[in-house]
């Protein structure tokens, strides 16, 4: 049996990759600016990461090592599917270790581990326009970006304070990039916003359904919007990770039983594993250790 037609490397044809790379270059030249691109039909529906997948497909090469996370975890259905997809169509090496990856595609979290030069973080973005829910007209929002008219964004923050006593946006918290464009960092928790600022890595953002690509080049200023008397603050957690004892990381709440039992564990699964391998233990695991001894 002759070989059936196989996929082109990384699924997309070369012309498409060219088109996407051009958009990416433009995005890198204008940090935070949303570049329209001709989003293709992908083998997963809109809303399942097609934007991120197209960006990754356009930049990935045979030498790359890919990590895919979803809400910080490598083992959720989506992360597993996308990783498997690229293994099949690009035959690349994959990893769950942040420090070993060259490309990290992520949905809604930035890894705890500091990223280094040469790494690329690809974000999956649902709605790229930070002003969308305040100003539904695309014609108006484009003008506002072009003319740097961002008063409306602060109106939203003002409303939050007036109604809730503080800025209540806890994810997709708007930022100003390189002192010029206001950008939606994708639905990452505001806890992660500081990681975007002056990163050594390249950050790319892809929105498949909305057909936009934007970027934050390495060593770029990314400042979260706020008021002088209500400055930006990240979430703090009282607890440490129940498994590895990590402090000052983003925690997921896990319901244990129907009696209200719950535990808080690292959202970043690689980070947690790594710490446990190095001997750190959290409250949940400590009693077992003692029992074993």
């Amino acid at each position: 049996m002759t070989d059936l037609a196989t996929y082109n490397f990384a699924y997309l044809d070369e012309q498409t990759k060219r088109m996407i790379r051009r958009a990416i270059l433009k995005a890198i030249s204008i940090p935070g600016y949303q570049v329209p691109f001709a989003s293709r039909e992908m083998p997963m529906p809109y809303g399942w990461g097609t934007g991120g997948v197209q960006v990754t497909a356009a930049i990935i090469g045979p030498e790359d090592v890919l990590k895919v996370i979803d809400q910080g975890a490598d083992d959720t259905t989506n992360a597993v599917s996308i990783r498997a997809f690229f293994q099949k169509v690009a035959d690349v090496a994959v990893t769950t270790h942040t420090k070993d990856a060259t490309i990290i595609q992520t949905r809604h979290r930035i890894p705890e581990q500091k990223l280094t030069e040469g790494q690329v973080l690809v974000y999956q973005v649902p709605i790229p326009e930070p002003l969308r829910f305040l100003e539904p007209r695309e014609t108006e929002t484009r003008k506002m970006h072009a003319l740097e008219e961002y008063g409306l964004m602060h109106v939203k923050l003002y409303e939050d304070i007036a109604i809730n006593g503080r800025i209540s946006k806890t994810y997709a918290y708007p930022v100003k990039v390189d002192g010029r464009y206001v950008m939606d960092p994708s639905p990452t928790p505001k806890f992660d916003n500081p990681k975007m600022h002056m990163s050594d890595a390249l950050q790319l953002f892809g929105a498949g359904r909305e057909k936009r690509i934007y970027a934050v080049p390495p060593h770029t200023e990314v400042v979260s919007l706020d008021f002088e008397d209500y400055p930006f603050e990240i979430q703090t957690f009282e607890q440490d990770c129940a498994l590895c004892g990590a402090h000052g990381v983003y925690l997921d709440e896990v319901v244990l039983d129907d009696k209200g039992g719950r535990m808080f564990v690292c959202s970043d699964t690689d980070h947690c594993e790594d710490r446990r391998e190095h001997g750190h233990v959290g409250a949940m695991l400590a009693p077992n250790q003692e029992a074993a001894e």
């Binding site: 602060h154 409303e159 706020d226």
Partner: peptide, 20 residues
């Protein structure tokens, strides 16, 4: 948006950043 935000919008548009 609230009445206060309506009145404050122009101020925020020209760079006022103190909520109070």
């Amino acid at each position: 948006v609230s009445a206060g935000a309506n009145v404050g919008e122009r101020l925020m548009a020209v760079g006022d950043r103190h909520y109070g």
